[in-house]
Design a protein around this nucleic acid. Structure first.
Lengths: 123, 123
DNA sequence: TCATATTTTGACAACCGTTTTCGTTTTCGT
DNA sequence: ACGAAAACGAAAACGGTTGTCAAAATATGA
């Protein structure tokens, strides 16, 4: 694990939600790092391959990443217009995901859930 | 509904699964249509807006479409090792997401759910 | 240590699916 | 049939991602 790769991992674990490669790149540069965008992508790919981060695609095709060892587990409902996020709890979903995993013979089951909508102020 | 748009809809309903815009374009050209790729995209966008087709993103960011008549919205449980995906149904989650949206004053609520784990073969 | 092999890095270009642009063609109402 | 509005297609633009390649960092070993 090189220093740069570790920096990306650190940057990602600083956030509880999902973060795009470009976001992470901006974060790192803002902190003074001289890392390149290419390296951020490579680091994320490596971390993804080794199962240390989860990847998913947003509706507009952008890849977003999350450190998948987060214990403080919660979800968000995000406004499409103003991007405000409200934390929501979901024992229902947690249970459902675990059940689905068991049902299909999967172990070490984790899940990602994001809810989108238009908030009261913006609609 | 223009003739071209109707042709795209027809082409899509000819398949039971998901089909990309470019696939549909190739199909239509093969049938002798002189439709342009741009129009295929526009037709799919219109059909998607009006709720006549479902859209989702493949892991490599490509948008795929499906005529949504009988089939319903579903999710996947993906193996971390071999990337096999199993379709799972989640009335539980659908309901939960809708409830959460209503509870916090959000309208037009959608959600993304991905479940990860290690499948029986890979563990 | 020093020299050499290997890996990692980052600027930049290439890639590819998608969207925008813009001039032309078709459709639709009157 | 006429004019306005919508739809069309070719090509260019766009944006996120991946490939290229030479330089820099790191590991290896004599």
């Amino acid at each position: 694990m090189s220093a740069r790769r570790e920096a990306v991992r650190q940057a990602l674990s600083g956030y509880s939600g999902f973060r795009s490669a470009q976001d992470l790149y901006t974060d790192l540069r803002a902190e003074g790092s001289k890392i390149g965008l290419t390296t951020v992508y490579r680091a994320l790919q490596a971390l993804s391959d080794s199962g240390e981060v989860d990847v998913l695609r947003t509706d507009d095709g952008e890849a977003v990443y999350r450190a998948c060892d987060t214990e403080s587990h919660h979800h968000h409902i995000v406004c499409r217009v103003c991007a405000t996020a409200v934390e929501i709890e979901g024992p229902t979903v947690e249970k459902w995901a675990a059940e689905m995993g068991a049902k299909h013979g999967f172990s070490g089951v984790t899940h990602t859930v994001e809810v989108f909508g238009t908030c009261a102020d913006c609609s």
